[in-house]
């Protein structure tokens, strides 16, 4: 956990509005800039910190100020579990060995460096198999839009209900199922551990388009990506175009999601594509950028002449 105090320091600086960056961190802790950058990367990727680089201030702020660093206190038992997992990942010697080893070193960061030995009893996980089975059933019903019959017990009574399951969400005390009753569209939430019995029927329900996009339970709305319609000469492999998520495909035309316009423009300048169909504003920006570059090249050529 040696680098956690640096992350805490960085978090405090961001909250104080001082717009810190990796150089500040490197200077403050007398570490290399590369190391500081790795810490920031770790914050962003593993701790999901919504860090936003503000070019104007040359530093970071939080895009969502409600973000808190996850609690990093761990019980001895949890440390053992992580140690065990790190151990297993390090021992892994088959396909994708490198990735597994990377995970091992990541897990190692959370554990005490002085506990090197793995002579403890292998830990076991307390996970109720009934809940695992139930979650699997619920997920299937949500995916297939199937009506379910459940026996649900709350603090008042036990009752049998026919429901249209929509979504599973995680709360701090456990999982919750969001559903509507068969006849009206009002949302009802059920604690998954209160569902005594669940049966997936063969009947389907129709899901209104709105139900899928509606944010639920006061969750903060997240920013939606821009979508570019790009045509290619040959089909793309996988579900992303060099890291830009593919949302939909119509033959050789793909809907590509992106958040940052500048980096996507850069990508368009270096990657291969056939046609940029939409959005218009992106075409315009790319055109302006290319024209500026051409003008500059032109000026340089004239100078040479």
């Amino acid at each position: 956990m040696s680098h956690m105090h640096r992350i805490h320091w960085f978090d405090q600086q961001v909250r104080a509005g001082t717009y810190p960056n990796s150089s500040h961190m490197a200077e403050h802790f007398e570490i290399s800039r590369r190391q500081a950058q790795r810490d920031l990367e770790y914050m962003e990727v593993s701790l999901h910190a919504p860090l936003l680089y503000v070019a104007k201030y040359r530093g970071y702020c939080y895009e969502d100020t409600t973000y808190v660093l996850p609690h990093l206190y761990m019980t001895e038992e949890e440390k053992k579990v992580l140690k065990y997992l790190a151990h297993r990942y390090r021992q892994y010697n088959y396909e994708n060995r490198e990735s597994a080893n990377r995970i091992a070193s990541l897990l190692d960061r959370f554990t005490d460096p002085d506990v090197r030995e793995m002579n403890h009893r292998i830990p076991t996980f307390d996970m109720n198999p009934r809940i695992i089975q139930l979650i699997e059933k619920l997920s299937f019903a949500i995916q297939e839009s199937r009506i379910m019959i459940i026996m649900y017990k709350d603090h008042e009574r036990e009752q049998q209900l026919r429901i249209c399951p929509l979504k599973l969400i995680s709360q701090y005390y456990g999982d919750e199922l969001i559903a509507t009753s068969e006849h009206d569209q009002e949302y009802i939430s059920f604690r998954v551990d209160g569902i005594l019995y669940a049966h997936v029927t063969t009947e389907r329900f129709t899901r209104e388009a709105e139900q899928e996009v509606k944010p639920w339970n006061g969750q903060v709305m997240t920013r939606k990506p821009f979508i570019a319609k790009v045509g290619f000469i040959s089909p793309l492999e996988g579900d992303s175009w060099h890291g830009y998520r593919i949302l939909a495909q119509d033959e050789l035309v793909y809907d590509i999601a992106f958040y940052d316009t500048d980096s996507f423009l850069m990508h368009l300048l270096i990657a291969k594509w056939n046609e940029l169909i939409a959005p218009q504003w992106l075409k315009h920006k790319l055109q302006v950028k290319c024209q500026e570059t051409l003008n500059r090249l032109h000026v340089v050529e004239e100078d040479h002449e």
């Binding site: 936003l52 104007k56 702020c61 997240t222 920013r223 939606k224 821009f226 504003w281």
Partner: peptide, 20 residues
């Protein structure tokens, strides 16, 4: 007012910024 280039904001992202 600082940059000549217009910023683009999706209708869906109207009002969403880091200040909440």
């Amino acid at each position: 007012g600082c940059s000549e280039e217009s910023q683009i904001v999706l209708y869906d992202n109207f009002g969403l910024n880091f200040t909440t």
